[in-house]
Nucleic acid binder design. Structure first.
Lengths: 129, 129
DNA sequence: ATCTCTGCAAATGTTTTGCATCAGC
DNA sequence: GCTGATGCAAAACATTTGCAGAGAT
């Protein structure tokens, strides 16, 4: 990750503009509006490199491809829209999770994912009636 | 899923004995002690069939292969051991998750996954000192 | 005996890698 | 011009499917 290429700039710009975790496929589609011939391999190589640099962190949701988001946002969780498939950041954290632990188990971290409909998808449902 | 074959019996028995969600690979390894030549395709076909019958439900954890567990256990979540990689059922549910929702978002379901060390792995750490 | 189920191997879909060429420095 | 980065295509890996033969009924 030494050179500042058009492809890398495109991927960084797309991620900063979207402000939500994106999959390699989503990234490729958006980045191609800036660098039309970009290959998927470049996306994978770039997000891997940016993750090793600490500029990105991976976001893994059950049963879905790995996503990437800009790092440095502190502890947070995600909301996955059942209608449009996009994933959003959410803040806050449920408490009392340690009460769920079986005896002898020790918790080191946790993951919370909420599913439902995002604001955009709720709006368009209302508009349609 | 009409015939009662040795392969299907093996897979059902392994799942009932383990009492935790298992991946196709785990299932194959355990089931081969009963049916040595079992193929991985049979495992995939069987868990798919048992899921359609409602006898199994899928358990998907971020970044990990799909697991299967015996159904009918009611609402619960999972604990993934960072040491041995096994996944366990946990009961109870954090509250106040709706407070994490951004404006306009509507929650339909949720997923909670705790990570840490299971009882077995904590015990063996203690024994070693 | 019939027809489903199985094991193998080939196909699929996703991510990774090899390599000749391109382009940032 | 040197050498890292890219695009393409092939490889790797997990899961699914096609098919001939095995086995449950």
């Amino acid at each position: 990750m030494q050179r500042d290429t058009a492809q890398r700039r495109a991927i960084r710009d797309v991620l900063l503009a979207a402000n939500r975790p994106m999959s390699p496929q989503e990234l490729l589609e958006d980045a191609r509006s800036r660098v039309p011939n970009m290959g998927i391999a470049t996306v994978y190589r770039t997000v891997k490199g940016l993750t090793e640099l600490g500029w990105l962190v991976t976001v893994e949701l059950p049963g879905e491809p790995q996503r990437y988001e800009v790092s440095g946002k502190g502890h947070h969780h995600h909301f996955s829209c059942n209608a449009c498939g996009r994933v959003f950041e959410i803040h806050g954290c449920p408490s009392e999770m340690d009460k769920m632990l079986p005896k002898g188990f020790h918790m080191e971290s946790h993951e919370v994912i909420l599913y439902g409909r995002c604001d955009d998808c709720n709006q368009s449902r209302k508009q349609r009636g």
